[in-house]
Simulated scan of single mutants.
Amino acid sequence: MRGPGKLAGATGAAALVVALAVPMVKAWEGRRLAAYADLVGKATICDGETRGVRMGDTATPAECDRMTAAAVAEFEAAIRPCLPGDLPLPSRAAFTVTAYNIGADAFCASSMARRAMAGNLRGSCDALMMWTKAGGRVVRGLVNRRTAERDLCLAGLQ
């Protein structure tokens, strides 16, 4: 059972993870105010948001800021049960950024999550590098992105 102090602590930790993750999401996703087809043809807007997006949709910068922060918080909450509770915040932020990109279900079913839950945190961070393909081919931008996510993940282990 959680007491008020523990709930507040979890909320604070989640907020810190989101604060670390949002700038990284924005940096890697790029921002577009009109919907476009991503590398695999999925309608995308703002900072990589695909959920509920249709071609022809538009957004303002302020709407994108709100959308991205809310989505990152949702992904952080969705993957939280798939990771050890004592995972360092930078590592948790790196995995949140990854989940934003690949989806929470894919993240939770991945070797990243399995290795982390088994206590192999370094291996979990290294497993980020397995997620460098889109449409069945290695994408240089994903290699660069996963390298940055891995660096953040490992920084949490030092």
Rank of each mutant, 00 (worst) to 15 (best):
A59E: 01
V53S: 02
R54L: 09
T58Q: 09
K26H: 06
A37V: 11
I45K: 00
R51N: 01
C46F: 13
A69H: 04
D65I: 12
A34T: 15
A59S: 08
D38T: 08
T68V: 14
G85Y: 05
V25I: 15
R54H: 14
L39P: 09
G85K: 10
A43S: 11
E63A: 13
R31W: 04
L83Q: 01
G85M: 02
P61M: 13
Y36L: 13
D86G: 09
A78F: 05
M55N: 03
A35W: 07
W28N: 07
F75S: 04
C46W: 05
P84M: 06
V40A: 13
K42R: 11
P84A: 08
M55Q: 03
R66T: 03
A37S: 13
D38E: 01
A35F: 07
D65W: 04
D57L: 07
D47V: 12
E29M: 14
V72H: 00
L33T: 12
P61S: 10
E49W: 10
R51P: 00
T60F: 02
G30E: 05
G30W: 15
F75P: 04
G56P: 12
R54G: 03
V53W: 04
A77H: 05
L83E: 01
E63D: 07
G56H: 06
G52V: 03
D47H: 14
C82A: 12
G56R: 03
L33E: 10
L33M: 14
G41M: 09
A70G: 03
A73M: 06
E29K: 14
A59P: 00
A77Q: 12
L87R: 03
D65P: 08
G85F: 04
I79S: 05
C46Y: 03
D38P: 10
G52Y: 11
P61T: 15
E76K: 02
T68S: 01
L83S: 00
E29N: 02
R54P: 03
R32G: 14
A43M: 13
A34N: 09
P81I: 03
I79C: 00
L33Q: 11
M55R: 02
T68E: 00
F75D: 12
T50K: 09
A43W: 15
D47R: 10
E74F: 05
L87F: 11
E29V: 14
R31V: 11
M55I: 10
A59F: 06
A78P: 04
G30K: 14
A35H: 06
C82F: 04
G52I: 13
M24K: 08
A34I: 15
R54F: 15
P61C: 11
A59L: 15
A59M: 15
K26V: 13
E74S: 08
A59T: 10
G30T: 07
G30R: 15
G30N: 12
G85P: 04
W28G: 04
E74C: 07
T60S: 12
T58D: 07
T60E: 01
T58E: 09
D47Y: 12
V72S: 03
F75N: 08
